[in-house]
Amino acid sequence: MNAALIEGISMGLVLSAMIGPVFFTLIQNSLEHGFRRTAVLALGILASDSIYVIVTYFGIRFLADTTLFEQVLGYVGGLILIGFGLISLVKKRADRPSTGGLSISKIKKRTAFAKGFSINGVNPFVLLFWISIASLVYLKSNWGTSDILLYYSGILITVFSIDLLKAFIAKKLAHLVTPRLMQILNKVVGLIMVGFGIRLIWWASMN
């Protein structure tokens, strides 16, 4: 197997092991709305990561040194995460996943995709991660175009696959989840989201 691909898969495993707002959102959505809708949410995460790959690789890495950019992204990202957290906190009850093999509506699919895209996309730490990856790639002077493509593909495919695995495992455990437990989970996820949002705002204010 190509060394660049192996290195990309390894980096993808490292990124997937990080516990952040995306992790809790995947678990919550899988339990609450089912695997298919969570797969669409994971596609939104993949799309935002792909955009960051393109942006950082093609010369906008200098944004990492732009304090104003980091501050704006930190404040906006923090407010969005707090917003998602408050929505989870004020939920009266969790809707159960639909049954009978009915397809998910296009509106719900778009909502899930947008949620995954925004929660991952507004996190400045995700941007900084991809900037560091782009810097690492540029140091690989012996890598050709195919090596770079394999490296990035290894990271993205690994992260996406593990996101799907997390959602699948959570869905398999759904029969153990009672409405009361789901309500508690919503509160916990909401508090975690608010916590991450406050942390982002604090981080932005310190720069």
Score class of each variant (00 low, 15 high):
Ala170Thr: 01
Glu32Asp: 11
Leu150Tyr: 09
Phe35Met: 11
Phe23Gln: 05
Phe69Trp: 00
Arg36Thr: 11
Pro179Glu: 07
Ile184Leu: 14
Leu181Cys: 09
Gly8Trp: 04
Phe84Trp: 04
Leu127Asn: 08
Ile198Glu: 03
Ile60Pro: 09
Ile162Gln: 01
Leu185Gly: 06
Val53Trp: 01
Ile107Phe: 14
Ile184Phe: 09
Leu127Ile: 14
Leu102Tyr: 11
Ala4Trp: 07
Phe58Thr: 09
Phe24Ala: 08
Leu89Asn: 03
Asn186Ile: 02
Ser146Ala: 13
Ala3Asp: 15
Leu63Val: 05
Phe24Gly: 07
Trp203Met: 14
Ile87Tyr: 13
Leu181Lys: 13
Gln183Gly: 15
Pro21Ile: 11
Gln183Lys: 15
Thr25Val: 12
Ser103Thr: 10
Ala64Tyr: 06
Thr111Val: 14
Pro179His: 06
Thr99Ile: 12
His175Trp: 13
Phe117Val: 09
Tyr152Asn: 03
Asp65Gln: 13
Leu68Pro: 06
Gln28Glu: 10
Leu149Cys: 11
Gly85Pro: 02
Met18Thr: 13
Leu89Ser: 03
Trp130Lys: 05
Val22Ile: 15
Lys166Cys: 04
Tyr57Asn: 13
Val194Tyr: 02
Ala174His: 08
Asn29Val: 04
Thr111Ala: 15
Leu149Arg: 10
Glu70Met: 15
Asn123Phe: 07
Arg110Val: 13
Glu32Met: 12
